[in-house]
Amino acid sequence: MSLKIEGAWKSFVHDGTAQSVLRNVDLTVEPGQFVSLIGHSGCGKSTLVRALGGLLELDAGQISLDGKPITGPGPDRAMVFQHYSLLPRLSLVDNVRAAVRSARPDKGKAAADEAAERYLTAVGLWDAKDKRPHQVSGGMQQRAAVARAFAVEPRVLLADEPFGAVDALTRARLQSQLIELWTSESDTEIVVMVTHGIDEAILLSDRIVVMGNPPGPSIVDMIPVELARPRDRVSVIDDPHYRDVQERLLHLLTADRLDDEEAA
């Protein structure tokens, strides 16, 4: 029982030439795992996460959850986007409610409202529930977006650089809330997150998938992060294993970049 990607290929036509963004990607994520996708722009990490969300079709290969092939968006997966992506006319709570009611018609109205309350409370936004997105800060908008995704009670949470657009202090708080929601507040089993941040990836993940640019293979390496949870963001950086992983990532990501520059 797991999230499985097998032989995934995807190309986009750019300026008349086809670019293979996903090149024969194989990846299996077991329940209970938090996986980060890291790599330079254009390596296909967003494409992969969008494919997992069912937002785009693969050219070849398949994705399955518990053996069932994924062909489009479904209530078993929810997504947090880089830009806050709340609907501007709706209050925070109505944003969450609308999403839950649409994604989970099986739940009924009362249960949907209850889920909205529970997850907005969990991210500390119940007091601001009647505000419209433009009336609150970017960090609060993203927290509401995270609450919206969890409120659907998906098995898999997908996040495409969820904290890329917020400042460092807000990011730290959002990271803690995401882990808190995932580990204790929800039944969500798997998180797949795209990130640019090496430290963010180590702090949050069980496994880091390093992706590379064409023409090399899509997946350059997979690095397990064996740090006990809960992880304390201050003390964890002194752990030798943290240092090891950090060094490997730095090496992989900068080596990749050097190759690029030589090729250019």
Binding site: G53, G54, L55, P73, G74, P75, R77, A78, M79, F81, H83, S85, L87, R89, L90, A98, A99, V100, R101, S102, A103, R148, V152
Partner: peptide, 21 residues
């Protein structure tokens, strides 16, 4: 695009899409 993606991921019905997006 973000709002369209939201509508797809959360599987907004036609009416919800018209009304909210």
């Amino acid at each position: 695009v973000d709002q369209r993606d939201v509508a797809r991921v959360f599987r907004f019905g036609r009416f919800t899409y018209l009304r909210h997006v």
